[in-house]
Amino acid sequence: MIELRDVRKFYRSGSGKAEILRGVNLRVEPGEYVAIMGKSGSGKSTMLNLLGTLDLLDSGTYELAGKSVHKMSRGRRARLRNEEVGFVFQHFQLIPNLSVYQNVLLPLTYGRKRLRRKKSRVLALLDEMGISNKKNQKPDRLSGGEKQRVAIARALVNEPRLILADEPTGSLDEETTESILKLFDRVHKNGATIIVITHDIEVAERAERILYLQNGVLV
């Protein structure tokens, strides 16, 4: 599913440049559930952005679902992102002016996949997440757990093969964390590949494999 080879990424900061990723190698098989841990500022989000094609690597190669991302045009990357990747961001990243329903619908609006019954699919997902009663609310009226469910529903709506989650339980209590993790387990059982970033060892232990990001490399 994923193949990173000797990936480097640096940010220009003022005068010099800070190398965040210094030769990352990673291979994830389809259907795998991987957790990535690391100190704050170690570059976990940076790596997730690369995996999700939201950012470009500075050297190395990246193949996603058999396609070379580092050679792709902007538009093709957008399509790939739409069809293959579902994001659960560190800070939910819901659009504040759209209702829960509209937020979840967004990936379907941009998709080229001719999904039938888009509406019923969204409603079914909201139901599955236990938030169908909030479908017409604006995100700022929701609790953290509810927002995260909306974000997960949005990540799943297009039936992507890869789910990327950045601290999905970062700001949630134990009970809510558990219910979110159960959702992930279910998605994983249905065959999706999941990469989750977390500080929390208990969250990481739900995955099949745990990797650590240290000094710009994965160990």
Binding site: L54, R74, Q93, I95, Y110, R154
Partner: peptide
């Protein structure tokens, strides 16, 4: 701007 970022993350192209 953030909204534009979100839309792009969900697969919107620049032209969309």
């Amino acid at each position: 701007t953030r909204e534009i970022g979100i839309r792009k993350a969900l697969g919107a192209t620049t032209s969309e």
